[in-house]
Write a protein that binds this DNA or RNA. Structure first.
Lengths: 220, 220
DNA sequence: TAAATTTGTTAGGTTAGTCTAACTTTAGTA
DNA sequence: TACTAAAGTTAGACTAACCTAACAAATTTA
């Protein structure tokens, strides 16, 4: 059985690994930063995880999850996203409130609970932020998606997920009436600063920053 | 903010205190036994809780929750019972499965979560075992109830709660088709061993042991 | 390629929560 | 009331997860 903390390290490694899909290797500092601990602490834990065959790594090298480690990490991520969905759909939590509570709920140990929860939610495919929910068998549905910033002029897309899940960004999206599924048309890409003139739904045309465009996942 | 462990100690003190309603004082050993730790460990924690003004006690004396300690304990109990209700009602858990998972869920920190959960469950008054769910303000509905063993011959009652919540007992009840609300008529009290001849619902008359009768709460 | 910077590790220390073994106090009983 | 048993405490030790400060390796850059 893994401790609360060990689970967090595995999830962190999984998440960081998923971010650069080509190479899922992760560095000590990144991991420490992600978890809000000091690098020295991360090193300690790494040794422990290696001992338990959950990661492979050697001194001064990169970290990689083993098959078992990955599976455990995915299980935590699955719970996290299912709970987020529950909070959003059933308990009326807002977009930006779900994460914090799900961080706690993801560590509840009960196979039955997570599977029943999934059933109760009617086997959702995506969490409230548009991220895919891993299946019970550990499969993570692959979602074909690009950043809004990668769109060309005069292309239209739909929002499928948020990359930045900070409350600040999510609240901003809410103000702009952007949710998962919202239609966005890119009318102009401004060379000067990379900002985009876009039409969001039926609202008047407006400009959004590069930072904004790099924080939203869309699908053509 | 209280730790997971501190919360458990407060809940234990509350529960043990509620058991002898006249005197809610608790001893170190009882508390330790309840929590599955050694008395020495309990003593250590007690000092800490006293330091934080959550309990009053002095060396070799009895332990009593302060108003604050009681309030915190009740908050944990409230969460526990609401989660049990959720698992039972929404996720199809059985009587004897809810406790273990609720032991974990009761420590999730989020005011909003517990209140929304309560609303989602439509403000239940009792948990699946028939125990009252504390209100958000800390009030615990007082339930007028007696043990089945206290009934006289030819009296009829309804089951309102179980005293013993062990899986063994709950599964036995299930086999006898006893749930909250089941009608029981005491036909005879056998002097020899205190066993009762009872009619449970419409089933044929049968005998139940003292131990059984002392494990069920009923209401005339 | 050598120096400087970044990245990662080691050593030693802290805190919370647990334990065992030995001891002290209180309560029950002869 | 004195003794014994039960209840409770203390001292000292352990583990997990964290820290800081000092050091070592790897990478970047001049």
């Amino acid at each position: 059985m893994l401790s609360y903390t060990e689970e967090n390290y595995l999830k962190a490694l999984l998440m960081l690994g998923l971010q650069n899909e080509d190479k899922p290797e992760v560095g000590t500092n990144d991991m420490a930063a992600y978890l809000g601990v000091k690098p020295a602490t991360a090193t300690d834990m790494l040794k422990k995880l290696k001992e338990k065959d959950l990661v492979t790594y050697q001194k001064y090298g990169k970290i990689l999850l083993t098959a078992i480690g990955r599976k455990k990490g995915i299980a935590v991520l699955r719970k996290h996203r299912l709970w987020e969905t529950f909070l959003y759909e059933k308990l009326d939590f807002s977009w930006d409130e779900v994460h914090e509570v799900a961080e706690q709920l993801e560590h509840i140990q009960s196979e039955k609970l997570v599977n029943k929860l999934e059933e109760f939610l009617d086997f959702p495919e995506f969490d409230p932020h548009g991220d895919p929910i891993p299946k019970a068998n550990g499969e993570i549905p692959i979602v074909h998606r690009i950043l809004l910033s990668e769109m060309k002029e005069n292309e239209t897309c739909r929002v499928v997920a948020v990359k930045d899940t900070s409350a600040l960004f999510l609240q901003y999206l809410e103000r702009l009436n952007v949710t998962i599924g919202t239609k966005i048309t890119v009318l102009e890409v401004v060379d000067f600063d990379g900002s985009l003139n876009v039409q969001i739904g039926n609202a008047p045309v407006r400009s959004v920053s590069v930072k904004f465009a790099e924080s939203l996942f869309v699908k053509k």
